[in-house]
Design a protein around this nucleic acid. Structure first.
Lengths: 192, 192
DNA sequence: ATTATAAATTGATATAAATCAATTGTTAGG
DNA sequence: CCTAACAATTGATTTATATCAATTTATAAT
């Protein structure tokens, strides 16, 4: 499924054949079965990963064993732990597959090289980072401003494309509410 | 107070005299009195702003007139609305001064030029963006995982350097709790 | 200094959401 | 296909936090 990544790149930027080849040469395709880890708490994350198929989540597990979902990502999204990537420290997060999935991963050194040698690639990456930042600002805004119901409706609207692929308990965790509360909200909202 | 910005730059990167001059030539120093807006909801944000002195906040105002604080920033921090900057759309946020302050602002076109012409500057900006993203991820984690008290303690610890400069009602807003709740938490915590 | 204005505190009460517990529904593996 | 494990629902209850209201304290303006 490298084509998915290729299409994504072609859509965003124009590359010479050599550049496209260079990217391909450092990209590793990895299949993940449902529930399989891409990253485990305590390991260092040294890649950039692009999802070519499936659906993944990033989450932490606290002392009480509770999971807190930080993000979901599907085909054509990037995923990883930027904190660990940046610091070289062990990650506080887990990333695993919600469905059977496939990712295109690029090692940090290779990725840095791509950024250095292919200006358009660098620009693309930078733009993604900026958009990610904006998205996380919006998520913070939702978390501090909205009621549970508003958070849910906001989520459904924003992730309309794949909200149905995600189990409710994970959505609840993402929103910072309990599965029971989410279930009740869904019932109520349906009645309106 | 351009020196504050200059020192910051010298600390982060090394610049030739020409580069330093170029940066200085496009930097506009602006003083802000307490409560003065740097950006108002509905206006387009077209700058990058570095704080040389004082303390500012970014916040939204909802239909009910409630304020929701998205971020605080003090000397040696950057501030702005990246969403508006990126999209060119009117901002949903306000930025104003919590204290009499001073900012060094650079217009978008000039800033882009600095990034293009001074590689070290570009790298620095990129690193800041990455760290900002990591910080916002951590904030999300706190918002969805912690109780009101934990959020507050976490805030105090993270912003130890300037937490005392910020009025409590704004801290409460930042944490997504009411000022009354924050006041009670502080009383209780103090007793322990 | 003195007043006006806003911020913080405190108490009483209401409410949203969490927790606990039981039941039903769904999915995946043998 | 059948059962085990898990996910979602529903109800009863508790708890954390919000809301409303009054008072005290702090800050700013004249």
């Amino acid at each position: 499924m490298y084509e998915v990544f290729q299409n994504y790149l072609n859509n965003k930027i124009s590359l010479t054949d050599e550049e496209a080849d260079l990217i391909k040469s450092v990209t590793i395709i990895k299949k993940l079965r449902k529930k399989q880890y891409l990253l485990q708490q305590g390991d260092v994350w040294g890649y950039n990963a692009f999802i070519t198929q499936g659906c993944l989540r990033t989450y932490s597990v606290d002392e009480k064993g509770m999971e807190h979902v930080l993000s979901f990502a599907v085909e054509n999204w990037w995923i990883g732990d930027r904190e660990s990537l940046l610091s070289g420290e062990p990650s506080r997060f887990n990333i695993d597959a919600i469905e059977d999935s496939e990712v295109a991963i690029i090692r940090k050194v290779d990725f840095d090289r791509l950024c250095r040698e292919i200006p358009a690639f660098n620009d693309m990456v930078n733009l993604i980072l900026q958009k990610s930042f904006v998205a996380s600002q919006n998520r913070i805004h939702s978390a501090i401003s909205f009621t549970a119901e508003e958070k849910y409706l906001n989520f459904i609207q924003k992730y309309a494309g794949f909200a149905l692929r995600i189990p409710q308990n994970m959505i609840a965790s993402y929103l910072g509410i309990t599965p029971e509360t989410l279930s009740r909200i869904r019932n109520q909202s349906a009645k309106k």
